[in-house]
Design a protein around this nucleic acid. Structure first.
Lengths: 268, 268
DNA sequence: TATAAAGGTGAATCCGCAC
DNA sequence: AGTGCGGATTCACCTTTAT
């Protein structure tokens, strides 16, 4: 990261770097207090209750029918503690972190963030304008995902919030914690060679645009420990922020690299 | 509770009873598996540290009640585990529970609910149409509170969800998990003899109306372990549900009783 | 009476720097 | 660490008072 182009050096302000591997393994190799903004979209495969995962997401064999619900929650919590702690070390003392999740995982994540010393600034609701209905009519249409925005500690004095910039998303009035944004569909949604969605949870660029514009400035370094399809780096690049993405699955890394090269190509 | 009028007996379907005391002490004396619906509005543990003034120098009357103060996260968690466990015992096997909170407490509450075996059905967002702005412009306007709707266990087969009834709140289409409802203000807000709000966190009846209509039927027993100003019993009564409220503060109990007697009087 | 203007208020984790 | 001060900071309602 210390080799990443930086505005002070005159290099490209919007350069990026993608690491392949588990963020719990890679984050300790990055210099501490170097990221101004972190956006994290962690996995929440809690429904796989019969399977127990180690904190690094490798599966533990041979325990399919012996582990109860608590064991599954506990392993997810330990995984969450580890990656959040690794992120906290890399986060600058005047930086902030965003974590997105659904009701399956966000309560556990939020509780652990508080326990680790993060201080919540807002819980932002991504209000999906076109959510998938509950087909059986046995629950309410699940129309939101929650983003927790937090600073590094309670006594942290400085952090970036571009209040005036965010007003443009609310008719010139103070922006609220409810963001109405459509799902990532259509041309923006990346498809594989079979025309199927290439990543199951690709986030809309409009969401990352608001995250990055609100809580970072040009030239700042944005970090995404679960890069996935690469939306964070792609939007950071468009908004002249440097970025680092970490992604475990080599197929997603390839996808993100291709996507970022594509943006490069279309802009030249 | 076994003496409460019941539709099967031909008695008043919308009778209510209010207990004075701490719900952790009182709930164990109620028969188990007897409540069809629980609505809980526990203390949020806001941890307000200083006075806040509007730009015109007027002071914001924040929540500084002693009942909202906890010494630590751990003591709040322990309190939460105790009242939730007591509620779970009283909840019928085909019943559901709602818990409302803000980002200050809802993550801890949700995590504990999952640990205790509750199975989340929805996280409903109360989207306030008239929230208090962030006067200093240092965060987003905090425009929501979260309601967790959960059944008693993962394998619970039966619970009440009045899908068709809820469609009326969304132009005949499937109701979503975002509920736009104004704050409780104006004539609905109960004032004391000095004209000040009599309870710092009175909930709007429209909110309870949706909760009760969606997940209970006429004659069902609704339980509120933190009754406060009595909104839950008042709305339950209007919707022909039996109800039990538990409230620690005798002044709030008196307030709720007066409110419910008032409704009785105006309806006769 | 009707309309307009003025005032009040809401579950809020709400400033930053110099001395 | 405590104090003082300059400066930037608000939205949708409802109620009361004035015209």
């Amino acid at each position: 990261m210390q080799n990443l182009p930086c505005p002070q050096t005159g290099a490209d302000v919007s350069d990026y770097r993608i690491y392949t591997g588990n963020c719990i393994d890679i984050l300790p190799d990055l210099p501490e207090k170097s990221a101004g903004l972190i956006f994290a979209d962690p996995p929440y495969n809690l429904q796989l209750k019969q399977e127990l995962y180690r904190p690094n997401q490798t599966r533990v064999d041979g325990v399919d029918d012996t582990w109860d619900q608590f064991a599954s929650f506990e392993s997810y919590d330990e995984f969450t503690r580890q990656w959040l702690n690794a992120c906290r070390r890399v986060l600058a003392d005047d930086g902030t972190i965003w974590v997105i999740g659904s009701y399956h995982n966000i309560f556990r994540v939020g509780k652990i963030m508080m326990d680790l010393g993060f201080w919540i600034l807002n819980d932002v609701q991504w209000h999906k304008s076109n959510p998938m209905p509950n087909f059986r009519g046995v629950r309410f249409t699940n129309a939101t995902e929650t983003l927790i925005w937090a600073k590094k500690s309670e006594n942290q004095k400085k952090y970036t919030f571009n209040h005036q910039v965010m007003k443009q998303f609310n008719d010139g009035k103070q922006m609220t914690s409810v963001w109405q944004i459509p799902l990532c569909t259509g041309k923006e949604r990346i498809k594989d060679e079979n025309g199927k969605k290439a990543h199951s949870t690709q986030k809309p660029e409009a969401l990352l645009q608001r995250v990055i514009l609100s809580s970072s400035n040009e030239g700042d370094l944005v970090l995404d420990p679960f890069l996935g399809s690469g939306t964070t780096c792609a939007v950071a690049r468009k908004l002249n922020r440097r970025s680092i993405g970490i992604e475990q699955d080599p197929r997603y890394v390839e996808m993100a690299e291709h996507r970022l090269n594509g943006y490069l190509g279309s802009e030249q």
